[in-house]
């Protein structure tokens, strides 16, 4: 059948945007190819990898298996939306600091999923972090430095909470693991 095009009023990264899109287009297609928000990535085509993860009213959602028309009425936040005039999201900084970014392709989705996790649980433990990121595949890192990056953000959040601005240790001062390498 021929495509039906809707005029969609979307709330993306705090802005209201009107966009004409075929009814069968996914949110990911609209974000990437209509709104030029190319930070959200396409990896698997069908919800298996998490590279397209965005926030939907603050909760993680797979944009590649969400119809754009179904996003109407929800607050959509993409990786680009985590950057504010005040600067980068603490997770964007800690992912960079911790060396969690290799090819970087899974990371917009990963960072967004981590943001949803910390919004729900600012003091998430390593086990909770692992569980929260279990819909996001990374092929480069073995996840090790991703976990460390989220843990750094948790620590930064705690530091901010007890007073004073969130201070981020430069990478050179990141807590080293014991030389024995045991039980990190």
């Amino acid at each position: 059948m021929t495509a039906v095009t809707h005029l969609l009023r979307l709330d993306v990264n705090g802005s209201t945007v009107d966009v004409a899109a075929p009814a069968h287009w996914t949110l990911l297609e609209v974000l990437r190819y209509r709104l030029a928000l190319t930070g959200s990535k396409q990896g698997c085509d069908k919800g298996d990898c998490g590279a397209c993860t965005v926030l939907f009213d603050g909760k993680a959602r797979l944009a590649c298996i969400t119809l754009a028309a179904d996003a109407v009425g929800h607050r959509v936040t993409t990786i680009e939306g985590l950057v504010t005039p005040a600067g980068l999201d603490v997770l964007q900084r800690t992912f960079d600091e911790a060396g969690a970014l290799q090819c970087g392709f899974c990371q917009p989705g990963m960072i967004v999923a981590a943001r949803a996790c910390l919004d729900r649980k600012p003091d998430a433990t390593r086990a909770e972090i692992k569980e929260a990121l279990a819909s996001n595949l990374c092929r480069c890192t073995g996840y090790t430095k991703i976990f460390e990056a989220v843990e750094q953000a948790v620590r930064a959040g705690k530091a901010a909470h007890v007073g004073g601005p969130a201070s981020l240790l430069p990478s050179g001062d990141a807590t080293p693991a014991p030389a024995s390498g045991a039980a990190r």
Binding site: M1, A23, H24, E29, D45, K46, V72
Partner: peptide, 12 residues
Amino acid sequence: MLRLEPFAFARP
């Protein structure tokens, strides 16, 4: 990308 075939969408 693997695209969807066209359809109409209704949202009751």
